[in-house]
C-alpha cells in the first residue's frame, strides 16, 4: 500500500535539505517531514466519536479509508480554537492507520538545512517538548518539528 511507498526513513531530522510541510497552531510555526504527509485537507465533516478523549475530533472517510481526526491544539494542551476559525488537516499514516491532524492553517513546503537545526531548548514547555523533534531557525521565526509518532502514541495518549 501507499504506506510502503511513503514510509520515510527513520531519521530525516538530520537529512540535509529535507522538505517540511509547515503549519501553524496558535501562531507557532510547526513542520512535519513531507514524506510523512499523505494529504492536506480543508475542513471536512467528521463523525463525532462519543466517549473518546477530547482531542479526538472524530472520524472521516478519506477515499474509502476511515481516518481518525485529532485536534493537535488539544493534544498540545492549548485552548480550543474560536468557532469562526475553520481548521485544516494534514493526513499522516502511523502504524497502518490514517490520522488527520487538525491544525489552524497549512503553509508552504520548505526545504530546511541542517545548519539551522537545534535540539529542543531544555526550557521548552514540557508538553511541547514531548512532541518536538527539534527546532529550525528560520528567518524571523522558529519552526518546531512535530514528532508524529509520539503525537499519536497510543499509550501516551491514554495517559494524557
Amino acid at each position: 500500500m501507499s504506506q510502503d511507498r511513503r514510509q520515510p526513513n527513520t531519521d530525516h531530522a538530520h537529512e540535509d535539505g529535507a522538505e517540511y510541510v509547515t503549519f501553524r497552531i496558535a501562531k507557532q510555526l510547526f513542520g512535519i517531514h513531507v514524506l510523512k504527509v499523505q494529504d492536506v485537507l480543508n475542513h471536512c465533516k467528521t463523525t463525532r466519536i462519543p466517549l473518546a478523549p477530547p482531542e479526538i475530533a472524530g472520524s472521516l472517510n478519506l477515499r474509502g479509508r476511515i481516518v481518525t481526526a485529532i485536534d493537535v491544539r488539544l493534544r498540545l494542551g492549548l485552548p480550543m480554537r474560536n468557532a469562526d476559525e475553520t481548521p485544516m488537516s494534514i493526513v499522516v499514516e502511523n502504524e497502518g492507520e490514517l490520522y488527520s491532524l487538525m491544525v489552524d492553517s497549512v503553509g508552504e513546503v520548505l526545504p530546511l538545512t541542517n545548519g539551522s537545526w537545534e535540539r529542543n531548548p531544555p526550557t521548552l514547555d514540557p508538553r511541547l517538548r514531548e512532541y518536538s523533534e527539534g527546532i529550525y531557525r528560520l528567518d524571523g521565526e522558529l519552526l518546531v518539528v512535530l514528532d508524529v509518532n509520539r503525537l499519536l502514541d497510543y499509550g501516551g495518549l491514554k495517559a494524557a
Binding site: 465533516k45 463523525t47 466519536i49 472524530g58 472520524s59 476511515i66 481518525t68 497510543y154 491514554k158
Partner: peptide
C-alpha cells in the same frame, strides 16, 4: 483506530453508502 479500542461500546466503525463514517 487503536486509540479508540478501549471504548467498549463500539465494536468497529464503517463507511455507509453515502460515504459517511
Amino acid at each position: 483506530a487503536p486509540i479508540l479500542r478501549d471504548i467498549a461500546l463500539f465494536s468497529g466503525n464503517t463507511i455507509l453508502g453515502d460515504g459517511s463514517v
